[in-house]
């Protein structure tokens, strides 16, 4: 269960550039909830993820994940429970290390980093996991991650973020930098993994279709607030056009890209 109570974030406080990026955000999710988040640029979506993951600290409020108070825990400690993917496929992997080494690091998440020699004893497990990506990476354990394509790297990052099942998964427009076909592949892979492990997930997207197609809840954000919560029957009955209409009227964002889909 994830609970945010009265979370506010202010950047550059007491300077001319002061910016309230989140204002008193509240919500509660149950285990296995999969929320899609939409909102115009600068609405505070990424900031919401940063404050949950500890990259920025909350000015006010509390963050509770499965009974643990995360509010003042440093980022690296929170990542024991939280997996994250960013828009930039380069962010989630170490390029000059091999696929196997990257996965090995991911498989150690939350454990102690010891002076034991790196070994190949989990090779088979990794090969099986890579096979599930269906990108032919299972034969390339020794390849440098820097030699992979953006889509392959993002898929690998997804695998790494879920290799040790996280309690919460944060996906920040993680397919926005990929070509449409690869994006759909990574997206369906994400949803498969999320379903299989019942991972509580928040996913930011700019694609209204995806926002409805995936997950069981949708939040609309504007100016640091969550201005609409869609779930249950309302959401199930909603068509993409209705969502676009709701989005545009509530955020006053009449973006061509969104209207044209």
């Amino acid at each position: 269960m994830l609970e945010l109570q009265d979370i506010s974030v202010i950047f550059n406080e007491r300077t001319v550039n002061e910016k309230k990026a989140l204002s008193s955000v509240n919500f509660q999710l149950q285990k296995g909830d999969f929320v899609t988040i939409i909102g115009s640029n600068g609405a505070g979506k990424s900031t919401l993820f940063q404050v949950i993951s500890g990259a920025v600290l909350a000015k006010t409020g509390k963050i509770i994940l499965n009974g643990k108070d995360l509010t003042s825990l440093p980022e690296y400690k929170r990542s024991r429970f939280i997996g994250r993917l960013f828009q930039d496929p380069l962010k989630g992997t170490a390029p000059s290390m091999t696929i196997e080494e990257n996965l090995s690091l991911a498989s150690q998440r939350g454990k102690h980093f010891s002076l034991k020699l790196f070994s190949h004893k989990h090779k088979q497990e990794m090969i099986d996991a890579l096979k599930s990506l269906d990108l032919g990476l299972e034969n390339r354990l020794e390849a440098k991650v820097g030699t992979l394509s953006g889509g392959q790297r993002q898929a690998l990052t997804l695998l790494m973020a879920t290799y040790v099942t996280p309690e919460l998964l944060l996906l920040d427009e993680h397919t926005a930098a990929l070509d449409p076909k690869t994006a759909q592949k990574v997206l369906s892979l994400s949803s498969k993994l999320i379903e299989k492990h019942q991972i509580t997930t928040l996913m930011i997207t700019h694609n209204m279709e995806d926002a409805l197609k995936y997950g069981n809840k949708t939040f609309i954000m504007k100016d640091g607030h969550i201005i609409a919560y869609l779930e249950g029957e309302t959401r199930q009955k909603m068509t993409v056009d209705e969502l676009i209409h709701l989005y545009s009227t509530s955020t006053q964002d009449y973006n061509d890209k969104i209207l044209l889909r």
């Binding site: 440093p74 690296y76 990542s79 994250r84 000059s96 990257n102 690091l105 150690q108 998440r109």
Partner: peptide, 29 residues
């Protein structure tokens, strides 16, 4: 040669390669 191939050494190398990724693996960079 030994140290850089241990789990700890691996984490250290990754740290110079991509700090974000290392922190995401719950390592204190």
């Amino acid at each position: 040669y030994y140290f850089l191939r241990t789990q700890l050494g691996l984490a250290l190398r990754a740290c110079g390669d991509n700090e974000d990724m290392v922190r995401a693996s719950s390592i204190d960079t």
